[in-house]
Simulated assay, not measured.
Amino acid sequence: MPRVSPEAELLVVGVTSPILVGLYRDGELAERFESRQKSSKALPPILHDLRYRYDLKALYYARGPGSFMAIKVTYVLLKTFAIALDIPLFAADAFAFNSGRPIKAVGRSCFVERGGEIVVEKGCDAPEGGFTLPPRLDRTLFTQESEPLYILPAV
Rank of each mutant, 00 (worst) to 15 (best):
78 L>S: 09
79 K>M: 03
128 E>A: 12
42 A>S: 15
135 P>W: 00
54 Y>K: 08
108 R>M: 06
75 Y>W: 12
73 V>G: 01
49 D>S: 13
6 P>H: 01
81 F>L: 15
152 L>R: 15
103 I>N: 00
62 A>Q: 00
114 R>T: 10
124 C>T: 10
86 D>C: 04
35 S>Q: 11
122 K>V: 12
63 R>Y: 00
36 R>D: 13
86 D>Q: 13
75 Y>E: 04
129 G>P: 03
155 V>I: 12
52 Y>Q: 09
59 L>R: 09
31 E>Y: 10
129 G>V: 03
29 L>S: 05
8 A>G: 06
95 F>R: 02
115 G>A: 13
6 P>M: 10
142 F>S: 00
146 S>P: 02
55 D>Q: 15
94 A>L: 00
106 V>G: 03
138 D>Q: 06
117 E>Q: 14
52 Y>A: 05
68 F>N: 09
48 H>F: 15
89 L>Y: 06
86 D>A: 14
4 V>Y: 02
116 G>R: 05
42 A>L: 13
23 L>N: 03
112 V>Q: 10
118 I>V: 15
78 L>R: 05
30 A>M: 01
131 F>S: 02
46 I>H: 14
68 F>M: 07
98 N>W: 00
27 G>L: 04
47 L>D: 12
132 T>W: 01
105 A>F: 11
26 D>A: 13
92 A>Y: 01
31 E>D: 10
74 T>F: 06
84 A>K: 13
144 Q>S: 13
131 F>K: 02
155 V>D: 11
3 R>Y: 13
18 P>W: 06
123 G>W: 07
25 R>S: 10
